[in-house]
Amino acid sequence: MKRPGEPVQTVKLRRDAALAGLVERVPFAGFLGVCLDRRGDEVTAILPFREMLIGNPMIPALHGGVTSAFLEVTAQLDLAWTLVRDDVDAALQSGSAAPDLSGFRMPKTIDFTVDYLRPGLPRDAYARARIARSGRRYASVMVEAWQDRRDRPFAQATGHFLIRPADG
């Protein structure tokens, strides 16, 4: 639905601002340097390479804790985005510049299982999540990370999250 005086590009920027606002609510995501790239309804998390993320400098490879943290942050933020997306769109449709997400509570990790498939190379990494199920209280999320080739993931994970009501 297109509104006069509300160019599509403006809506896109505001939607991206809402997404960036979610990332900012997780200080640890900033510590890792994770940012999100949205193309339509598909969100890709990006972990720009930095020396700090190296585990063993002799190999050198990303630290396993970096890999699992990147996957967990991606799963959590993708789930959060899915949960607020309708509210963001509704706010944008009604002409409001910034949807109010102050009542939104970040999903909490219940458990997280990571498979390390290959060493993480000292370069940028990407990850995408898929919400397998999102119910009233619990969500199950799958996530995969890759570097040079999308069809050669270096890690995959599945996790369960607790979705917290705004008053909970």
Binding site: F28, G65, A69
Partner: peptide, 16 residues
């Protein structure tokens, strides 16, 4: 920290 409202550590830090 995972959630600045509570100051609780993020799971990703615990996993490392």
């Amino acid at each position: 920290v995972g959630d600045p409202e509570t100051g609780v550590l993020h799971g990703g830090a615990v996993s490392a």
